[in-house]
Every structure is written in structure tokens, then in C-alpha cells.
Amino acid sequence: MSFIKPQFHHPALPKNKVGYTKADYEGSISTLCAGCGHDSISAAIVQACYEIDLEPHKLAKISGIGCSSKTPAYFLNNSHGFNSVHGRMPSVATGAYMANRDLIYLGVSGDGDTASIGMGQFVHAVRRNLNMVYIVMNNGCYGLTKGQDSATADVGSINKEGSENPFQGIDLCSLAIELGATFVARSFSGDKHQLVPLIKAAMSHPGFAFLDVISPCVTFNNNKGSTKSYDYVREHIDATSELDFVPIHSEITIDYEEGKSVLAPLHDGSLLHLHKLAAGWDPTDRKSVIDLLQTAKSAGDIPTGLLYLDMNTRNLHDLMKTAKKPLNSMNESELCPGGAVLEGINAGFR
């Protein structure tokens, strides 16, 4: 059996600047559990892409394995997708990005996929500063294999079977900052208001943009005592800022408040307006972000929002000095040195 969403397009559905309706950004019908946080994130991706007037074929979706990694089938049916192998999305994304620097790469992963089996690849994708959006749909467990604790489960969190996790949880945001990620945000699948602008900003960021989105697993990790349940997250969430994404050519209508606001231009001409709610923290200063995260951790808070931003970023192609023209569009004349050159090479081996 295969699942394809019936396409009833209302002729009067509004179109965005590039002529697409919101339905054009949707995917096949989700097969995830009803209420799964991952579906809300998919919806936020659809919303964000529609609103930033993205042409769907200019984006490629790449994922690993897990319930979370299945979601690329549930959004952006007009974009190519690659549901690869467990924990290896970063390498596939790296290769894809090497081949064509002009697409937007949206990597989707789970906490198991990223923080355990794929930790090595995640770490290296960050340090190479791939120009991509990397979303971890973080539910603190392995959904697809029926609820085992993951490496992001907080110490002391109680799973569905009632056992308490004795191990330290990995904070992927702190790690990403440590490794030199240039855009690091945390959000919650239940907070569309915050998540959509974050995704939009991440897509406009010219380097590695990391989004750790807490996304409760209703089936295996939404119980009392779990620190990744809807209830727990709602109670402990602490937005550090409000974010407005100001697309290219729009008029800036937000009041710019000295000391409380950060206005950052993105490479495509759009603007990020960040209104700080948390005190004593500067999202452009790595050290102060780490402090914020450490303080929140001891207080049991979950700081969300755009945590860290570095606009002076040089992505992998900049670092490697690759041609502006995508490599995948080059032909013999650009790639093959030709027979005469080979004759010269042969002569050097005589």
C-alpha cells in the first residue's frame, strides 16, 4: 500500500511570489502516530518554505533513518528527497552539497540518528561548515525501534517502562556551538510561532544552521517523569528571544530597541530581527551562549530560540575555493584535460 495525498487544489488558493500555493509544499500523508511532534515540524517546514517563496525544486531533503527521518516524505513533494542510512545523513548531504552549491540542503535527523550512531558524521559536518539546515527532531528516544532511551535523554528522565536514565544527556546545541556551528537554535515542535521564523532564518543562513527541535514521541516518551514529554517541555520552556524574519525587499516595521535587539542581515538580503528576552546574553558571543546554556541546565530550564549566530561565516565551498558554477553542471570541456596534455604526462613517465 502506498500513501499519496489526494490533490484537491482549490483554484482560489493564494499563491506566493513564485506562484506556488501552500499545497505545492506539502508531501504525502504522514504515517507517523497521531500527535507525534515530528508532524508539527513538517508542517512548520511547509509553512516556512511557502512564506519565503522558495521554489521547491531548489531544495533537497536528506535524512537518515528513524520516524524523524521518514518525514521528508511528508513535506515538499516537489523537492528531491533522500532517505539514506541510519546516522549517515551528514555525509550524503556533504557529497550533495559538494556536487551542487546552489541548492538549499535540508537535513532531517533524529536524536538517535545524530547523537549516537551518527555522532561522528554530525561533528564533522559542523566543523566543515556545510551550507545546510540541519534539523534534529529530538524526542529523547528511539521512536522507530520502539522507545529505547537515546543519548539526548536527560539524566534522571523516566521512560515509559519506568526506568530512570542514569547517563548524562548530550546537549546538541552546546556541542554544535563548541564545534563552530554558525547558527544554533533550539525550539519546540509545539511552538509554531517560534519555529517557523527559525526555519526561515536557518534557510537564509550562509553556513551550517543547526536546529534542535524538541519533538515529543507520544507513543514511547510522553509519560510522567519524561523530560521530553509535552507537559514537561511546556512547563520548562524558556524562550530567550523573539525572532522576526524579514524577507528581502520588505520594509522594516519593527521597532529596533537598543541593547535588546539584534538586527542581522542575511546573505540573500533578508534580515533577522531578534528581540532578546533573556538577560545577560549576547547571541553573537559564543562564551555567553555557553554560559546561558549551562545556567539553564542547572536550573532545569529549556532555553529556546536562536541561541547563537555568527554572520562572518565561510562555508565549505568558500574554504575549498570551489568554482561558483555547480560541479554537477560541468562537462567534458571543463573537466577533461584532453589528449595532448596526457601525452605530456606520459612523457614525464619515460
Partner: peptide, 22 residues
């Protein structure tokens, strides 16, 4: 574009990603 990967898993993953992308 040439990348010295973190291991062989990543190396072949990159090759596959690039080839998939043309």
C-alpha cells in the same frame, strides 16, 4: 572538490550524495 573524510563510511556517503546529485 575533494574532502578527506572522517572515515570510510563518510567517504562513501559523500560519494553517494554527490552522485545522487549529478
Amino acid at each position: 572538490a575533494i574532502v578527506q573524510a572522517e572515515d570510510e563510511l563518510a567517504a562513501i556517503g559523500m560519494v553517494i550524495g554527490a552522485a545522487w546529485n549529478g
